[in-house]
């Protein structure tokens, strides 16, 4: 027992900081895109892939991955899907309202390991939110990376997020962007099919670093494709979602075998978690 460290001098890891909603936009029927700035005017310093606990007093907190790059210091983005009591309450808020955040928390993407390499990002559905942080980061520091390939899949066209970004990426020459929907509609002229149908569209080398984020079922199929290309599983990074209630490695809810997603992750190499039966 260490009696040196007196409790009054220690910060409470559960004490959140106030942030102001700069902009709030209904991205899809269930998802709202918030742009936030810290009330004290300080920049939120984080790594792509890290999370925050986003909270509203009287309702609670939810873990959310940063959806913008730390290179854009004036504000940061979070996308909230209305699923429960807390997220529904937060999604009733608009510009000028306050929310409370704790973070950044957890381990993000290994940027040093990605620098100088070809990077493939495979995002499914809401998985585009946490990967958008890395996407923006790469685009903002484009010459630090090799080729940059982005796959994005949703169930239906109306569920696509960040439509302005997508329009921009479709015509961009600094990202090789491919998209698909499981089921098209009258307006959709693009690829129809599951995410793996995008792999034949581009030549990928075994040296590529792959980042994968999507629904639980997604990983098995995407990793199978990457195996065929010969990408070693240490070079495949997954961003996992769990019920990270405390975000600080105590409450136990996000545990996968002996790992705490909130502090050991949420980004893991696939090699690290592939043998953990509870991971996928």
């Amino acid at each position: 027992m260490n009696h040196q460290c007196h409790w009054t001098e220690v910060e409470n890891i559960f004490m959140p900081r106030e942030a102001t909603i700069v902009r709030a936009e209904q991205a899809t029927p269930t998802e709202k895109h918030f742009t936030l700035a810290m009330k004290d005017g300080r920049a939120m310093e984080f790594q792509p892939g890290q999370i925050v606990e986003l909270g509203l007093f009287g309702y609670g907190e939810i873990p959310i991955g940063f959806a913008s790059s730390p290179t854009r210091t004036e504000s940061f983005d979070l996308v909230v899907r209305s699923v429960g009591r807390v997220s529904k309450a937060i999604n009733r808020l608009t510009g000028g309202d306050s929310v409370w955040v704790r973070g950044p928390l957890g381990h993000g993407f290994d940027l040093a390991g990605l620098r100088g390499q070809d990077v493939l990002i495979v995002a499914g559905g809401i998985g585009l939110c946490p990967t958008r942080s890395l996407i923006q980061y790469i685009l903002d520091r484009r010459d630090e990376f090799g080729r940059f390939i982005l796959f994005y899949g949703t169930r239906e066209p109306c569920l696509q997020l960040f439509r302005d970004d997508l329009a921009c990426w479709r015509g961009a020459d600094d990202v090789e962007y491919f998209e698909t929907v499981d089921v098209g509609d009258d307006t959709w002229t693009g690829n129809v099919g599951v995410i793996t149908t995008l792999f034949p569209k581009v030549e990928l080398t075994p040296e590529t670093r792959a980042v994968v984020c999507g629904p639980p079922i997604f990983y098995r199929f995407v990793v199978r494709e990457l195996d065929l290309i010969g990408v070693p599983r240490e070079n495949v990074f997954v961003d996992l979602e769990r019920r990270m209630k405390c975000g600080v490695g105590k409450c136990g809810h996000c545990q996968i075998n002996d790992k705490y997603v909130c502090v050991d992750g949420p980004v893991f190499s696939f090699a690290e978690v592939q043998d953990l039966e509870e991971a996928f």
Binding site: M1, C5, E11, G249
Partner: peptide
């Protein structure tokens, strides 16, 4: 376990 990684004063203060 409460002290490691993220020091949890809510437990530790009562303990100390």
């Amino acid at each position: 376990l409460f002290a490691e990684r993220n020091y949890d004063v809510n437990y530790m203060a009562h303990r100390q």
